[in-house]
Design a protein around this nucleic acid. Structure first.
Length: 463
RNA sequence: UCUUUCUUAGCUCAGUUGGUUAGAGCAUCUGACUGUUAAUCAGAGGGUCCUAGGUUCAAGUCCUAGAGAAAGAGCCA
C-alpha cells in the first residue's frame, strides 16, 4: 500500500474518508490508558499532527503504549470522524508497526524548551514545533523571493563566494587561504607572500554580491543575487550572524524612487505569500512568539511605507524632546535607538530613510546636487531595525573616480568596475535585503540564531 | 569588543538576613483509568548547586579568577 502524507490527509479528507490509509511518521506525543490510547503523529509534511487512535485489540498494544516522542512508526488504518473535540478527523489504527523507539534520553520532550537550550542541540531543533514553523516559513520566503523576481523577468545571478575585492569596506572579511598556517611564506619585507596562494593573490569570503551583480544588470536589465555572505565581525547581538543570506536586486534605467518601490512591493509580496501559504505556522507564531504579529503584518501589507530624508529624520528626532543616549546630530549615522524611535514610536510601520550624508555611506552611491548627501535608502521596520539598505548608483565616471580618490581607494583594483561606466553608462539602483532579518520580521522570532538552520556566530560553529 | 545580568535534577525554575538531610512542575519508572488534547490520579528513583581558589564555626547563598550563556551597545544586513 502506498504511503500517504499527513498534509494530503488533511487537504483531501473527503476523498480519504472511511478509506484505508497508510502513513509512516514520528510520534510527537502519546496518551495511553488501559484499553486504548492516542498518538499524535507528524511526518513533516505539514505543521499539524494527525491523531492515531489505537486499542488493545492490536496484538502489540503493550509495546505501542511504550512509544515516546521521536519514535518512528508505520500505521495502517482508516480515516474516520473524530469523537474528540480537538480535531475533525483521526486515524483508527488497524496495525501499528514499530520501526524504532526513541531513547528515553531524547532531550526533546513534550514540553516547552527554552530557545537558548535548543541552540545547544541545534541538530534536533527541526523536530520541535517552533523550528518546524520557522524553517518551513524560511523556505517559503526564499521561494516567494524567487517567484517575485522571476515573475518580473529578473535574472538570478550566482555571484562568487570567494572574492578578491574588499567590496565597499562593508566590514571585516574572512580570509580564504591555501597557505600552511604553520609556515606562511614571506616576501623580502617579511610580509605574507600572497603570490604563493592558489589564486596567486589574497582572497576572501564575499561580504556582498553587489559589485559582481552590477555587470549582469548591464546585460540583462534587471537581475538579483540570493546567496550567502560572510562578515568576520565579533558582533554579539540578536541581529548579526557571521554567515547570513542576502538578496540583492539591481535594476537598470531606474532611480532611488524605483528602487524603494521595488523594495516595498517585494516585502509586501513575501508577507502575503507566507500568510496565504503557511497559515498554521503563522498562527503558531501569533500565539506563542508574538501576539501582535498577524495584526502588524496585515497592517504592513495594506499601508504605504513612510519616506523621509535623513535630514528630516534628524529634525524629527531633535524636536521629539526625547533624551537619547547618543546625541542627534546631522552628519552622524542614526543609532539603533534613533531608528527604533522613528519606526516604532513615531510611525509604527516601515520607514524609508533616504539621502544620507555621503561620508557615512559607500563610495558607489549617487551623489546629490548638494554634494553633501547621496541617494541612499535604509528601510527600518519595528522590532528588527534596518532590514534593507540600498542606493541609486553613481553612473558618472568622473564623479565616481573623484569620490574614490577622496577615500584613498586603490583605483586600479576597481578598474573593471569603472569600465562599467566607460562602455555605456545609465542610471541604475539596487538594494540588499538581509534574508534572516526578513525571516525574523515575518515570524516574530527575536534572535537571528533561531532563524538560521546552523547559526554561525562568535564562538559558535559546533554543528 | 564594552556594560549589565545569569549558570541549582534530563528540561523549566524556586531556594528569604550565610544555618540541620537542597525543593516544585514536567519528563522517566511502577500502578490506576473506556475519548484523551502538553490527558488525569497515586507512588518511586533522580543533584560535582558551572569550574578553581578564598572568607567563615558553617557557603547553593559572600569575595576573587576562569568558562559558558543572555540582554543592551558598537559594526551592519
Amino acid at each position: 500500500m502506498k504511503k500517504i502524507l499527513i498534509k494530503t490527509l488533511f487537504e483531501k479528507s473527503e476523498e480519504f474518508f472511511e478509506k484505508k490509509i497508510f502513513i509512516s511518521a514520528w510520534v510527537r506525543t502519546i496518551r495511553s490508558s488501559k484499553k486504548f490510547g492516542f498518538i499524535e503523529l507528524n511526518d513533516g509534511s505539514c505543521f499539524k499532527n494527525i491523531q492515531i487512535v489505537y486499542d488493545n485489540s492490536l496484538d502489540n498494544f503493550e509495546k505501542i503504549t511504550k512509544l515516546s516522542l521521536g519514535s518512528s512508526i508505520s500505521v495502517h488504518g482508516e480515516l474516520v470522524k473524530s469523537m474528540g473535540k480537538g480535531q475533525s478527523v483521526e486515524v483508527h489504527a488497524k496495525n501499528v508497526e514499530i520501526i524504532s523507539y526513541s531513547s528515553l534520553e531524547n532531550p526533546i520532550q513534550k514540553k516547552r524548551h527554552s530557545l537558548e537550550y535548543l541552540r545547544t542541540i541545534a541538530y534536533l531543533r527541526p523536530r520541535t514545533n517552533t523550528f518546524k514553523a520557522v524553517f518551513r516559513v524560511r523556505s517559503l520566503i526564499a521561494y516567494a523571493i524567487h517567484k517575485f523576481f522571476q515573475d518580473r523577468n529578473f535574472v538570478y545571478v550566482h555571484t562568487p563566494i570567494i572574492t578578491s575585492t574588499d567590496a565597499e569596506g562593508a566590514g571585516q572579511m574572512f580570509k580564504v587561504s591555501t597557505l600552511d598556517l604553520g609556515n606562511v611564506p614571506k616576501d623580502e619585507n617579511k610580509n605574507v607572500d600572497f603570490s604563493k596562494e592558489l589564486f596567486g593573490k589574497a582572497t576572501f569570503l564575499t561580504v556582498s554580491g553587489q559589485l559582481a551583480v552590477e555587470p549582469f544588470c548591464m546585460g540583462f536589465g534587471n537581475v538579483y543575487t540570493f546567496g550567502p555572505t560572510f562578515r568576520a565581525e565579533n558582533s554579539n547581538t540578536q541581529r548579526h550572524a557571521n554567515e547570513f543570506w542576502m538578496i540583492e536586486p539591481e535594476i537598470s534605467f531606474a532611480d532611488l524612487e524605483d528602487d524603494m518601490e521595488l523594495a516595498e512591493d517585494m516585502l509586501k509580496y513575501i508577507i502575503n505569500y507566507v500568510l496565504e501559504n503557511a497559515p498554521d505556522e503563522m498562527d503558531f507564531f501569533n500565539r506563542f512568539i508574538d501576539r501582535t504579529l498577524l495584526k502588524r503584518l496585515q497592517n504592513v501589507t495594506k499601508s504605504k511605507f513612510v519616506k523621509i530624508t535623513y535630514t528630516r529624520a534628524i529634525e524629527i528626532l531633535e524636536k521629539s524632546n526625547k533624551r537619547f543616549e547618543f546625541p542627534v546630530k546631522w552628519g552622524n549615522d542614526l543609532q539603533t535607538e534613533h531608528e527604533r524611535f522613528l519606526t516604532e514610536k513615531i510611525y509604527k510601520k516601515p520607514v524609508f530613510v533616504t539621502d544620507y550624508p555621503k561620508d557615512i555611506k559607500a563610495f558607489y552611491m549617487k551623489n546629490n546636487p548638494d554634494n553633501k548627501t547621496v541617494r541612499a535608502m535604509d528601510l527600518l521596520v519595528p522590532e528588527v531595525g534596518e532590514i534593507i539598505g540600498g542606493s541609486q548608483r553613481e553612473e558618472n565616471l568622473e564623479v565616481l573616480i573623484e569620490r574614490m580618490k577622496e577615500l584613498n581607494m586603490p583605483i586600479e583594483e576597481y578598474s573593471w568596475y569603472l569600465d562599467l561606466r566607460r562602455f555605456g553608462t545609465f542610471k541604475h539602483a539596487g538594494f540588499g535585503l538581509g534574508f534572516e532579518r526578513a525571516v525574523m520580521y515575518i515570524t516574530g522570532m527575536k534572535n537571528i540564531r533561531d532563524v538560521l538552520p546552523y547559526p554561525r556566530t562568535p564562538n559558535n560553529a559546533m554543528f
